[in-house]
Amino acid sequence: MFPPWLAGGLVYASALSLTAGGITLLYITTRTFNFAHASMATFGFYITYIFYSFRGGNLYQYLPLSFLFGSLLGIICYIGLNRPLLKRQASTITLMMSTLGYDLILLSIIQMLCDYLSYTFKLYPRRVTMSAFDFEMFGTSAASIITPLIAITILTLLHLFLTRTKFGISMRASIENPILASASGINSDKVYLMSWVIGGGMAALGGAVMSLTMTGTPVMGMTVIPYMFAGAILGGLENIYGGILGGFIVGLAEYVGIYYLAVKVGPWILGYRMALPLLIMAITLLLFPRGLAGIQWSYLLESIKRARKGAKS
């Protein structure tokens, strides 16, 4: 159904939109740029990998487990690290650095886990091609169909949660005005905890999805985290939908853009694949210092309409 470059691109873009959405959520609730998203994503991949290696079957059935494990990692980070620092009104930079420390500890645990898996169970966890365990669907890899659906489902669920449930609305209220929310009897602690549950889960799920299109390694998340951030920043860091969209754009741009360029300019450009999304982020930031959210969409639409009318008359 899809050419291979587009299939891979869709999987990667779905993964980035999940992770960038999580980063955005954590930033707007707790002011924390979560570096630990890197190893949380890697952990998500390894959870799916481990369960698949030991129990076999359809690998997609283990994705919810990855999500739950990511939530657990998020809860630990919130209770052990983020909450005390938020109480102390620590600066953005301090919050950011604290998650970096957490990330490095998770990374070392992942590395040790890999050693353990290969020593005790004779697995090869350091270079995993998960797509080999994927199956075909409508003449293309199942991942390229299922993972965008996963991203859309998560987005829909999140939207319903945030607009239809009392707790979801209270999350939005806390994001906008924590003091007024608290004075209304909303416990911001619960809101923050919830955002770590969702954000951590999305990170791990994103990592598991990502391993379906790239080689899974212990430093997978570490390598990709600039792109997760790029997606979040592109989305404007103001609402989750922006983050999800930004991640998708960055992911797709990397695959589709590089394919296009390789055809136009020559295959040597393939080596710079990793550089492309960063370039896109840089250009966007220079034009719109507040990301996609900073673009005045309605104004833009208005002027396009007017231009059309002008052309007609």
Binding site: K166, I169, S170, A173, E176, N177, S184, G185, I186
Partner: peptide, 17 residues
């Protein structure tokens, strides 16, 4: 007031308890 929330949601949040 919560500027990003509708009036109904605002009242709902005010009556959170």
């Amino acid at each position: 007031v919560f500027a990003e929330l509708t009036l109904r949601e605002n009242l709902m949040m005010a009556g959170y308890m």
